[in-house]
Amino acid sequence: MGVKQAEMVKSKLFRFTLNEVRSRHCFLERRGLYQTPDKKGQTLIVNPKLNSILTVDQDTFLAQVAKASAEEYDVFQRLMAREWQAEEHQENFEAVSDDDEEEKDEENEGKKAYMRRKKK
């Protein structure tokens, strides 16, 4: 998000779940209302303050910050939930594939070592 640590503490960021923060941040980002600052902390647009993103109720957030309807936000949340599940599934699949490859490598190494010992 490109937010400084002091602003995170003032806005009580850590009282919110990761899904709430991700959902609101991604919603604004995909609507073009939030831009992650570059390494120098500069953006082409003026980003809303973290307080106005997190500490306000959903109706205020949608009306004043996101300028969207509740229906749009609901649809977005459902799509994001699917997207996050797909990412998790892909990560789990890759982790299992990596483990299988490591096990096969270990088995082959063990067989090679056994064969070497046997030949001697």
Rank of each mutant, 00 (worst) to 15 (best):
F76K: 00
A81Y: 10
M115K: 13
D74I: 13
R24G: 03
D57C: 02
A70V: 08
Q77K: 11
E20V: 10
D38E: 11
W84I: 15
K49V: 07
L79I: 04
R116G: 10
S23C: 08
F14I: 03
E109Y: 09
F93A: 15
K119Y: 13
V96S: 10
D98M: 05
N108M: 13
I45F: 08
K10Y: 06
Y73Q: 02
Q35I: 04
I45E: 09
E7D: 13
V3A: 09
Q35E: 14
R117G: 12
E106P: 03
S23T: 14
L28R: 00
S11I: 04
S23L: 12
A81W: 07
L33W: 02
P37F: 15
K4P: 06
Q64W: 02
E20N: 09
R117D: 11
L44M: 07
D38R: 07
S69Y: 07
A63V: 04
E72P: 02
T60I: 04
A68C: 05
R117F: 14
F27G: 00
K118R: 10
E88H: 12
D38S: 09
D74P: 00
K12G: 01
A63N: 05
Q90P: 02
A81K: 10
Y34P: 01
H89T: 15
R30Q: 06
E94N: 10
G2W: 03
I53G: 00
E91V: 10
E87V: 11
A6F: 10
S23R: 09
K120S: 14
D74Y: 08
Q85N: 15
K40W: 11
Q42H: 13
E72K: 06
A95G: 04
T36I: 10
Y34K: 03
R117A: 12
E109A: 12
Y114M: 12
F76T: 03
V46L: 14
R15S: 09
K49M: 12
K40N: 14
K104W: 04
T43R: 04
S23P: 02
Q64C: 03
E71Y: 12
A95K: 05
E7A: 14
F76C: 04
A63E: 07
R116S: 14
R24A: 05
Y114L: 15
V65H: 01
F61A: 04
L28P: 00
E107V: 08
E83A: 08
V96P: 01
A113C: 06
Q77H: 06
L33H: 09
I45V: 12
F14K: 08
K111D: 06
R15A: 06
L54I: 05
F16C: 05
E94G: 02
M8N: 07
V56T: 02
E29C: 09
Y114R: 09
K39H: 10
I45P: 13
R82H: 14
Q42Y: 13
K49W: 05
Q42K: 14
V56K: 01
D38Q: 10
Q58E: 13
E29Q: 11
V75S: 15
S23G: 06
K118G: 07
G41D: 04
E103T: 01
P48Y: 02
A70D: 09
L54T: 05
K40M: 13
E109L: 11
L79P: 01
P48N: 01
S52I: 02
E109F: 09
D57S: 02
A63F: 05
A95R: 08
A63M: 08
E29F: 12
Q85K: 15
L28Q: 00
L28V: 02
